[in-house]
Amino acid sequence: MSERQEAIPNKVVDLLVSEVFRKNNVNIDNAKSKLTDEQKRAIRELVDELKSQVETFVKESPSSKKE
């Protein structure tokens, strides 16, 4: 099965997020330091779960079919 197509190119999303952080003077290193290992683990698990839910949803959504 082919890789799921991105809704928006990842580079564009990355640029948008970087720009929002820059615009608001967010110090990334400072932000990183606020995360404990426990929080990182929890966020990782959360993201993984959401990813799999989205994948399931996109896969199960009926595709348009013409007969």
Binding site: R4, E6, A7, I8, N10, V13, D14, L16, V17, S18, F21, I28, A31, K32, L35, K40, I43, R44, V47, L50, K51, V54, F57, V58
Partner: peptide, 17 residues
Amino acid sequence: IQALLQILVAIVAKLDV
């Protein structure tokens, strides 16, 4: 939904999570 997820992933990637 896919786009929203991409934003979340981009944010956490930036934070080295």
